[in-house]
Design a protein around this nucleic acid. Structure first.
Length: 837
DNA sequence: AGTCGGACTTAGCACCACCGCC
DNA sequence: GGCGGTGGTGCTAAGTCCGACT
């Protein structure tokens, strides 16, 4: 066991604690501006907004589809899904849905009393082994890990004739009271509880048994080594190690599982219904070729309604101008964007003008955008919005319902006999392109998509969806079972690219690949030690060929800082970078060994971070910069395909993005393990949020500060002040009451009524509580104002970590996952409580 | 080896309904 | 009861990565 000495722990994640100050200022400009905090009204005129399908009942028998197939019993959308484990025994279904009142409390109150800690700094880590990647003999850790346990999922039989349904609401399971579980770490490799299915599929392509050999880096059973510690954590290592596993684990696990039995059974049932199990099982067999499905039935896509001219005239040089409906439509798109930041961008105006002008025609009266006044249309649009707002609840409901009816049939697909939700069955309405950051195409007209633009993918034996627009027809019908899309069209802005219609996140297909993603990331845990050793060796070795050295440094950065790979981009896109495309100007070496990063990453979100790095890395980066212009590539010998090709030699299936998943998930896992203490649910939820936040910071998931942030803070400050004043008075009153004197007049000048000292003491206590709560709300708010927690929860955090933690700590899962996430992560719900990432 | 088409994941923001607070 | 604030949801842009083709 070689120790990660903490001398290499110093990566400073400045972004952690200082986020508030960092952001407040940089956000406005660094972060892309468009529409950010603006009320963009655009969409609404053409843009379809409709009732959320998730909210709707799923058993609408009017749907042609639903009449074709039997549906699963209606699920109880409102009943909470509780974390459960399935198991062995006969089941008793006590369907008591004893919602405990705790669950219904708002977040704010849950936070109470807890989270001052939210503020804490993200530890600055680093590690990097300084040892050789030795012993080559322990391959296939994954394989063995995975096969250790049977997959209970696979034991389930699909309900033969019934159509199963994935998606919308979760089934009504009973809430289970989770037993308390000792906070121990389970035995390393035995926790692969439900992994069996995951080892097939892509991961197995270069199965660890076979090919994984390559460049020396192998998985290694290291009993104790903190390479698998998340970046942000390594620093804490000493403390951690004290808590490492023990032989007691087995016992703990056992006890737990048995105490879960009852619930397990329910869950088994539920799984049948929700049926992820089935596809999970089906998939493997389908490893034949790349087949993703065997039968696929759906109804195609729905189009936005045709444009309804409103006849409102714009003014040109002060005079009203007649426009054709087509011209008016585009003018309206522009008019309604008045309040957005796009209007300040010359590129946007230029692009819009070019496209609109084409529609107006060369010889149109309108010759200059500057002379146009779109206010009449803008105002008309505001009025329309207002009218909509004023509609009665019933009217709104009726409209919603109608829309619902129209759309119901498009909402579902039947994949291998299972009814699954379709993700985006609405064709994108026309509009002006809202590229992010300084996108060269912003403002261009995104033309209307017609059936002739759309290719449909459907099962061979399934009926071809009827084209919803009379007299028109689909571009093409395909029957390609190696892909998961139901339809696509070429992006009108960039015709080389496509827009796809996929199944919803709750579908088995998506669930399956999600699971595979996390399994791959978990696999990295077994390889990471040697990978780190390898790149350390490589960047230390100065005679190494430059490519190799660049690869080593790039890998280091991707690992340490969770940078994205950084594909090359063409001129037609916003100028953003990732690791491989970092420019000389994006990094600054600050002796003795600090590196400052400053660049625009995905979505033109600014990444600004100063970190301490290994000295060899520092030197190497300096050398990569030497003799280059500011605008040249730092890693000139590298691109993502070379980098990924290299990574694949280190671990089957490894690519740059796996590091992000790995570091995010393992950080959560460890944080939860280390930080969760005895306490009430609210306190535990705070621990979770704190861990979540840490991950969001690592991944640089930002959001714009809400428009009302400042006023919210102000309001809280005022409340705190008022409460403090009250407290002061109460204290005086208390003293007086003790002496039998009446209270003083209040701040409002009114005489207060006499109260006993006890009563006043009570009031004091509650005032104190109130102040505490307000202060905490304020801290949390300030702290999270630029941090987006959702993205990591949705995309980077293995849900099994969360579910297992909830089980261990008796936290109702819906405290953490909302309805969509519960549906999306259905596959993770039966995880063993002792699961570790 | 490099390019490009293709498929799929990841991302932040707009909008709206709902809920708690005053 | 009204209103502000928030969480959930939908939307679609912008990434990653693979593999076929040249």
């Amino acid at each position: 066991m070689d120790d990660m000495d903490d001398d290499d722990a110093p990566l400073v994640f400045r972004r952690g604690g200082k986020s508030a100050s960092r952001q407040s200022q940089s956000n406005a400009e660094a972060k892309r501006t468009p529409s950010s905090s603006h009320n963009v009204n655009g969409q609404s005129s053409n843009g379809q907004r409709k009732a959320s399908p998730l909210r709707s009942p799923i058993t609408n028998s009017k749907s042609p589809m639903s009449s074709e197939i039997k549906q699963m019993p209606k699920q109880n959308a409102s009943s909470a899904v509780r974390v459960e484990i399935k198991s062995v025994k006969s089941e008793k279904k006590s369907q008591v849905d004893d919602e405990d009142s705790e669950d219904d409390k708002p977040l704010s109150s849950r936070l109470k009393g807890a989270a001052n800690n939210v503020k804490k700094e993200v530890g600055g880590p680093s590690h990097v082994k300084k040892e050789d990647s030795d012993d080559d003999d322990d391959d296939l850790p994954l394989a063995s890990r995975m096969s250790t346990k049977p997959n209970h999922l696979s034991e389930k039989k699909p309900l033969a004739s019934k159509l199963q349904q994935n998606g919308s609401s979760t089934s009504n399971t009973n809430k289970m009271k989770t037993p308390v579980v000792p906070n121990k770490r389970p035995m390393e490799k035995s926790n692969s509880s439900d992994q069996s299915s995951a080892k097939k599929q892509k991961l197995s392509v270069p199965s660890s048994t076979t090919k994984a050999k390559p460049a020396a880096v192998k998985a290694e059973e290291k009993a104790d080594d903190d390479d698998d510690i998340p970046i942000s954590q390594r620093i804490k290592k000493a403390t951690v190690s004290a808590r490492k596993p023990s032989s007691a684990n087995t016992k703990a696990t056992k006890v737990v599982s048995s105490s879960f039995k009852k619930a397990n059974m329910k869950n088994t049932k539920q799984m049948k219904k929700s049926k992820f199990s089935k596809s999970t099982k089906v998939q493997p067999g389908s490893t034949d070729g790349q087949r993703k499905w065997t039968t696929l039935v759906h109804n195609g896509v729905i189009f936005p309604p045709p444009y309804q001219p409103h006849g409102i005239k714009i003014l040109y040089k002060g005079k009203p101008i007649d426009l054709t409906p087509e011209q008016e439509e585009v003018a309206t798109m522009y008019a309604v964007m008045k309040d957005t930041d796009y209007m300040q961008k010359p590129k946007f105006l230029e692009n819009f003008w070019n496209d609109w002008r084409r529609i107006l025609g060369r010889n149109h009266v309108i010759q200059k955008l500057d002379d146009c006044d779109f206010t009449p249309i803008y105002e008309w649009h505001q009025q329309e919005k207002e009218k909509k707002k004023q509609m009665s609840t019933e009217e709104k409901k009726a409209i919603k319902e109608q829309k619902m009816q129209q759309e119901e049939k498009y909402m579902w697909a039947i994949v291998d006999g299972v009814k699954e939700k379709v993700g985006n069955f609405r064709v994108e309405p026309p509009g002006l392109f809202r590229g992010r950051g300084e996108h060269p195409k912003m403002g261009k007209l995104k033309r209307r998509i017609r059936p002739r633009d759309i290719t449909i993918n459907i099962g061979k034996d399934a009926p071809v969806p009827e084209c919803p627009i009379a007299g028109e027809s689909w571009k093409e019908i395909k029957h390609d079972s190696t892909v998961t899309w139901l339809a696509f069209w070429n992006d009108p802005i960039n015709p080389k690219e496509f827009k796809y219609v996929f199944l919803a996140a709750s579908s088995s297909l998506k669930g399956q690949s999600d699971k595979e993603k996390y399994e791959k990331a978990r696999m990295l845990k077994d390889y990471i030690h040697n990978i780190r050793a390898a790149y350390t060796k490589d960047f230390n070795n100065k005679d190494k060929d430059p490519t190799k050295r660049q690869i080593a440094v790039a890998t280091y950065l991707i690992d340490k800082l969770a940078l994205r790979a950084g594909n090359e981009k063409d001129e037609e896109e916003a100028d953003t970078v990732g690791c491989c495309t970092l420019k000389v100007s994006n990094v600054e070496c600050i002796p003795p060994n600090m590196i400052k990063f400053d660049f625009l990453g995905k979505d033109s979100i600014r990444y600004e971070n100063t970190v301490e790095v290994e000295l060899p890395v520092f030197k190497a980066i300096g050398q990569f910069q030497a003799g280059k212009g500011e605008n040249e590539l730092l890693f000139n010998a590298l691109d993502t395909s070379k980098l990924n090709a290299h990574l694949k030699e280190l671990m089957p299936g490894l690519t740059a993005k796996v590091f992000r998943t790995y570091n995010a998930s393992i950080t959560l896992d460890q944080q939860l393990y280390e930080e969760t203490e005895e306490g009430d649910v609210a306190e535990k939820v705070v621990v979770y949020q704190k861990a979540n936040k840490q991950v969001a910071i690592i991944c640089n998931h930002q959001r714009t500060v809400s428009k009302t942030h400042d006023s919210q803070i102000l309001r809280l400050t005022e409340r705190i002040e008022t409460a403090k004043q009250e407290l002061k008075e109460l204290k005086i009153d208390l003293e007086r009451a003790k002496k039998g004197k009446p209270p003083l007049k209040g701040a409002d000048g009114k005489q207060k009524r006499n109260l006993s000292p006890e009563a006043i003491e009570k009031k004091i206590a509650s005032a104190n509580q109130k102040i505490e709560k307000y202060e905490m709300d304020m801290t949390t708010k300030e702290d999270l104002k630029t941090v987006a927690l959702g993205t990591s929860k949705i995309n980077y955090l293995d849900p099994r970590i969360t579910v297992a933690w909830c089980k261990r700590h008796e936290v109702p899962i819906e405290k953490i996952f909302n309805k969509s996430l519960l549906a999306k992560f259905a596959w993770a719900m039966d995880v063993d409580p002792e699961f570790r990432f």
